[in-house]
Write a protein that binds this DNA or RNA. Structure first.
Length: 397
RNA sequence: GGGUCGGUGGCAGAGUGGUCAAUUGCAUCAGACUGUAAAUCUGACGCCGCAAGGCUUCGGGGGUUCGACUCCCUCCCGGCCCA
């Protein structure tokens, strides 16, 4: 259930109720794809202020496999995590696998056949099966199995993916209803279900997709709890699809949650929030943290859709400047850079995360140069803390 | 003292007459990362130059050759073996 507290232009704040607790919107979810955020344990996660996380149907299905998750008593018990979890359907993973290398599998209207990249073993996923797996996981929020084509596909192919996504969404929703009944799940305990909007860079296809999905809801007799923005939200050059995101948000009913899947950089999140998107997930804070990039808030600068400007005492490198441009609310530093070798200042004197409370830049640089997992862990913790604080600040905009 | 093997770019270590400014690894420097096949990947890495390109290199010196990191002489230095 989603309740809106306040609305300012398109942006809104609210609260989502799930069987494992409430979440205030807007919120960010780190990707615990295989049932863990790499290098972090639940206590680390809790200290960052993160509440919900994303797990992945595809990855958990392959390993450890559903038999083990079921024996554990569901994904929450397996992970020992008692806060809300959202499972992604696995569609994006299977499709990107096949789009990258057609030998890896085959997509038909009925099902997706693919080979495990690690074992080579053959698997079949259908919309129904994805939903069943997500019920077996026992998550708080689940996502329909969709068809996410690369944005550079022809309009005809994107249109076909839209139709298939709608068709599959119906199968997902029918299966959802079936599972609710079969498992005797009460209204208060049911997982929220999200449809996914495809349509690439075509506004009309995005609109068609949302309309088709809403019709599916009416037909099955169950309104979608939310809609996700499918495929990538940036073009091949990494440029944010401003109008597509804005238009898609406007097509989605106001009472539904708007989930910007895979978004994104801090400025992209700000942009999406201002357009009315409520929830986000992305690998950026954790992956880039593991790779040495640290996000630093420029205090006093309001989060804006525009990118950041450099701190005067810590100039951005050429690449960083090119990426972020001038004028903004944060910068990034790369802890691998030699310039930190003798920098005994704090990473961010005002941040209260494990990294900033306890260590200097020089020490963290040393951890990265030593390739010790501790540096990667601390950097991921810091970046998540940065994202959590950003979400808090969004509410003040 | 005798014998023997060897001295290559920050390090390790290829190359053994021309296609070598010199394979590769490490280190170093920088970049990328957006519903995680990512503790990953990419690039640079003698000197000057944005570049085209130019310049100086393979322990020191001398020699052979059209041409040497590669062959010869000698000196210096190191490992191992024998005394």
């Amino acid at each position: 259930m989603f309740k809106i507290f306040e609305k300012k232009n398109q942006a809104r704040t609210g609260i989502v109720t799930t069987k494992n607790g409430e979440i205030k919107t807007p919120f960010f979810m780190p990707d615990a794809t295989r049932g863990f955020v790499k290098f972090l344990n639940n206590e680390d996660i809790a200290r960052t202020g993160i509440v919900p996380m994303v797990v992945n149907t595809y990855h958990l299905f392959l390993s450890p496999g559903m038999e083990i998750v079921k024996k554990a008593g569901g994904i929450h018990k397996f992970m020992n995590y008692d806060k809300p979890l959202l499972s992604d359907s696995g569609g994006y993973q299977v499709f990107s696998l096949i789009h990258k290398s057609p030998k890896m599998g085959k997509i038909t209207d009925n099902e997706v056949v693919f080979r495990s990249p690690t074992s080579g073993e053959k698997h079949i996923i259908t919309p129904e099966k994805s939903i069943q797996i997500q019920f077996d996981l026992g998550v708080d929020m689940m996502v329909c199995f969709d068809d996410p084509p690369p944005n550079n596909y022809s309009k005809a192919r994107i249109a076909a993916a839209v139709e298939r996504t709608i068709f599959w969404a119906e199968r997902c929703l029918v299966e959802y209803e079936k599972q609710i009944k079969k498992r005797k799940i009460t209204a208060g305990n049911r997982p929220l279900i999200f449809a996914v909007v495809q349509g690439g860079e075509y506004v009309d296809l995005r609109q068609r997709c949302v309309e088709g999905l809403i019709e599916v809801g009416k037909k099955v007799g169950r309104d979608w709890d939310g809609f996700g923005f499918g495929a990538r939200h940036v073009n091949e050059k990494g440029v944010f699809l401003e109008e597509i995101l804005r238009a898609t948000a406007s097509f989605i009913p106001e009472k539904a949650l708007r989930f910007a899947l895979g978004v994104g950089t801090p400025e992209d999140i700000v942009r999406c929030y201002l357009m009315g998107w409520d929830m986000f997930d992305c690998v950026i804070p954790t992956r880039e943290g593991r790779h040495g990039r640290i996000f630093l808030r420029i205090r006093g600068q309001q989060p804006l859709p525009s990118p950041p400007q450099p701190l005067s005492n810590s100039p951005l490198s050429k690449g960083e400047r090119e990426r972020h441009g001038a004028g903004g609310f944060y910068e990034t530093i790369n802890m691998n850079n030699g310039k930190f070798a003798e920098d005994f200042s704090k990473i961010d004197a005002q941040c209260d995360c494990d990294l900033c409370r306890n260590h200097t830049r020089a020490y963290v640089h040393h951890l990265f140069k030593s390739r010790d997992p501790l540096g990667m862990r601390l950097a991921a913790i810091h970046n998540l803390r940065f994202y959590v604080e950003l979400m808090e600040e969004l509410k003040t905009l």
